[in-house]
Lab assay of single mutants.
Amino acid sequence: KVTYHVPNEEFARKLYKKAVDANLNVEIRVENGQFIIHIE
């Protein structure tokens, strides 16, 4: 399980798409202006 803290929405979207394309379980949320992405 990996967690990324991404300040940039564009990068967060790319990361999310890559994980989904790889059939990984992804959860994304915004906290204090940062995008928190959990990948399992």
Rank of each mutant, 00 (worst) to 15 (best):
residue 17 K to T: 05
residue 29 R to G: 03
residue 40 E to P: 03
residue 30 V to R: 07
residue 7 P to M: 15
residue 5 H to L: 13
residue 2 V to C: 15
residue 23 N to F: 13
residue 35 F to D: 00
residue 3 T to Q: 06
residue 13 R to H: 10
residue 34 Q to I: 15
residue 13 R to K: 13
residue 19 A to T: 03
residue 2 V to D: 04
residue 34 Q to K: 11
residue 1 K to T: 12
residue 36 I to F: 11
residue 27 E to P: 00
residue 34 Q to H: 12
residue 32 N to A: 08
residue 8 N to G: 04
residue 20 V to Q: 12
residue 11 F to P: 03
residue 40 E to K: 11
residue 19 A to Y: 13
residue 6 V to N: 03
residue 23 N to S: 07
residue 36 I to V: 11
residue 28 I to N: 00
residue 26 V to W: 03
residue 32 N to V: 06
residue 34 Q to V: 15
residue 20 V to W: 05
residue 5 H to A: 10
residue 23 N to R: 08
residue 37 I to C: 04
residue 20 V to N: 03
residue 12 A to L: 12
residue 8 N to W: 13
residue 27 E to M: 10
residue 25 N to F: 12
residue 19 A to L: 15
residue 13 R to L: 14
residue 9 E to T: 03
residue 30 V to Q: 10
residue 27 E to I: 11
residue 29 R to Y: 12
residue 11 F to W: 14
residue 7 P to W: 15
residue 25 N to T: 11
residue 29 R to V: 13
residue 37 I to F: 02
residue 27 E to N: 07
residue 5 H to G: 04
residue 5 H to Y: 14
residue 24 L to H: 02
residue 5 H to I: 15
residue 39 I to K: 00
residue 32 N to E: 06
residue 1 K to S: 12
residue 23 N to M: 10
residue 36 I to K: 02
residue 10 E to L: 04
residue 20 V to P: 01
residue 24 L to Y: 07
residue 3 T to F: 09
residue 21 D to P: 02
residue 13 R to F: 12
residue 31 E to I: 11
residue 4 Y to D: 02
residue 30 V to C: 09
residue 22 A to V: 05
residue 28 I to E: 00
residue 38 H to W: 10
residue 21 D to S: 10
residue 23 N to V: 08
residue 12 A to M: 07
residue 29 R to N: 05
residue 14 K to L: 12
residue 35 F to C: 01
residue 37 I to H: 00
residue 35 F to T: 02
residue 6 V to E: 03
residue 28 I to W: 05
residue 19 A to V: 05
residue 34 Q to Y: 14
residue 27 E to K: 08
residue 25 N to L: 13
residue 22 A to P: 01
residue 12 A to V: 06
residue 15 L to M: 07
residue 18 K to V: 09
residue 14 K to M: 12
residue 31 E to Y: 06
residue 29 R to I: 13
residue 33 G to H: 03
residue 25 N to D: 07
residue 5 H to F: 14
residue 19 A to M: 12
residue 40 E to Q: 12
residue 6 V to H: 05
residue 19 A to G: 04
residue 14 K to Q: 12
residue 36 I to R: 02
residue 18 K to C: 15
residue 3 T to W: 10
residue 19 A to E: 02
residue 23 N to L: 10
residue 17 K to I: 10
residue 2 V to P: 05
residue 3 T to L: 08
residue 11 F to L: 15
residue 6 V to D: 04
residue 4 Y to N: 02
residue 17 K to Y: 07
residue 27 E to Y: 11
residue 18 K to Y: 13
residue 10 E to C: 15
residue 8 N to H: 05
residue 14 K to P: 03
residue 8 N to Y: 09
residue 12 A to Q: 02
residue 24 L to A: 02
residue 2 V to S: 06
residue 18 K to E: 12
residue 3 T to E: 07
residue 25 N to P: 05
residue 39 I to M: 04
residue 23 N to E: 05
residue 10 E to F: 06
residue 37 I to S: 00
residue 32 N to Q: 05
residue 38 H to P: 00
residue 26 V to R: 00
residue 9 E to H: 05
residue 17 K to Q: 13
residue 26 V to D: 00
residue 17 K to A: 09
residue 3 T to A: 04
residue 20 V to A: 06
residue 10 E to Y: 07
residue 19 A to I: 09
residue 5 H to R: 13
residue 9 E to N: 02
residue 36 I to S: 04
residue 29 R to K: 10
residue 28 I to D: 00
residue 8 N to L: 07
residue 35 F to E: 00
residue 7 P to F: 15
residue 35 F to S: 01
residue 38 H to D: 11
residue 39 I to P: 00
residue 4 Y to L: 12
residue 10 E to A: 08
residue 34 Q to W: 15
residue 4 Y to Q: 04
residue 18 K to Q: 13
residue 14 K to N: 08
residue 3 T to P: 04
residue 26 V to N: 00
residue 28 I to L: 11
residue 35 F to V: 05
residue 21 D to F: 08
residue 34 Q to S: 10
residue 12 A to T: 03
residue 33 G to T: 02
residue 27 E to A: 07
residue 13 R to S: 05
residue 38 H to N: 09
residue 27 E to G: 04
residue 39 I to W: 05
residue 20 V to Y: 07
residue 1 K to P: 11
residue 19 A to N: 02
residue 38 H to F: 11
residue 9 E to F: 07
residue 30 V to E: 11
residue 24 L to S: 01
residue 1 K to F: 12
residue 38 H to A: 11
residue 22 A to R: 08
residue 31 E to V: 11
residue 4 Y to A: 03
residue 16 Y to D: 01
residue 15 L to F: 07
